[in-house]
């Protein structure tokens, strides 16, 4: 005959406690290692542009590995600088944890980049640098060194003598500046090689590169080798050389490798290209962004390296994956 009231009281307490327990479990947030978003803003999101699509693949891999959300965005055109600035402005208002940026201009993106850093958003630049001391994190090919390597190959190809022309792509872009500088520095070591002072620009377009090649040949019909500073430029030059039937006579060394370039390499129109690692840029870009903002890692420069591709090493397993990153 233990008090009925007591039993009722105790059961009531139990009930309330159970209720609190259920509510607590239900509403306690699940702990996630990283909760915020990383934006990856590239120069072009054109799905035909393999380089940036490969960057995206790398970024996705890192995002999955680190268990974060990653949003890949950017303008359609590589030359759309204002478009990229607008996109960044919009992203700042969403206050993400970090932005991984491939800046489309060395100087024009400085104000927006400084705004990002001042808004306490981690900024990691990939592929190209930006002209501000505030941004200390850069993940790119060491363009200077890669261009030097390309110059060495060029020198070897032309037998260390003859005229060499340089066709860059966009004026003012850090990668273009560095590649040109690197190539010039390395090639000028060889006294017998005559490096043409003038630099041609393709504006990153094949047809302009084609036309400029004709201009080079008109001005310097005895040119022994041409250096094309990026993908589109190299292809434009290659087309011109093929059309003019100058295969093998003019050595062509360039940057980047896509399917079309591979075809030209197989045909012997292009002799060598420096291929970057866009997958690694994307992957390391996101990983750095997360580590800097969450683990307080010190920002640093990371060289993703470049590989010299020639006809004889096109199909090694490593290079296959590099040249054909997508399973089609």
């Amino acid at each position: 005959m233990i008090n009925k009231n007591l039993i009722i009281k105790i059961s009531l307490y139990f009930f309330i406690a159970a209720l609190i327990l259920v509510v607590l479990i239900k509403f306690l947030p699940e702990r996630r290692k990283y909760e915020k978003v990383v934006y990856v803003v590239v120069k072009s999101v054109d799905p035909e542009f393999e380089f940036w699509q490969t960057v995206k693949m790398g970024a996705e891999t890192a995002a999955k590995e680190l268990d974060i959300d990653m949003i890949f965005t950017g303008p359609m055109e590589e030359t759309d600088i204002t478009g990229q600035i607008e996109i960044l402005d919009d992203i700042i208002s969403k206050r993400p944890m970090a932005i991984v940026l491939a800046p489309s201009d060395y100087k024009k993106l400085v104000p927006i980049s400084e705004k990002i850093i001042k808004s306490n958003i981690t900024l990691v630049t990939i592929d190209s640098a930006i002209d501000t001391p505030l941004c200390k994190s850069l993940i790119s090919t060491n363009n200077l060194e890669a261009a030097q390597q390309a110059a060495e190959e060029m020198a070897r190809l032309i037998g260390y003598e003859g005229k060499v022309a340089i066709m860059s792509f966009v004026k003012g872009v850090s990668t273009a500046i560095e590649r040109e500088r690197g190539f010039r520095e390395a090639i000028s070591k060889y006294k017998k090689i005559q490096l043409i002072e003038e630099t041609w620009f393709s504006e990153g377009k094949e047809d302009i590169a084609y036309a400029q090649t004709l201009d080079i040949l008109k001005k310097h019909p005895d040119v022994a080798g041409i250096f094309g500073a990026n993908e589109k430029t190299v292809i434009g030059i290659a087309r011109a050389i093929e059309d003019l039937g100058l295969n093998g006579k003019i050595k062509l060394v360039g940057f980047d490798g896509n399917q079309e370039e591979v075809m030209f390499i197989e045909k012997g129109v292009i002799d060598a290209v420096m291929v970057q690692r866009p997958f690694n840029m994307g992957y390391l870009g996101v990983r750095e962004a997360v580590e800097i903002s969450l683990d307080k890692k010190k920002p640093e420069y990371i060289d993703t390296g470049a590989v010299l591709i020639r006809k004889d090493n096109l199909y090694t397993p490593e290079n296959q994956k590099l040249l054909f990153p997508f399973v089609k």
Binding site: T61, R277, F279, N280, Y283, L284, T304, K321, L322
Partner: peptide, 11 residues
């Protein structure tokens, strides 16, 4: 391998 490229570059 989903991370083949990272394997080749020793990442």
């Amino acid at each position: 391998h989903p991370k083949q490229q990272l394997l080749y570059s020793n990442l």
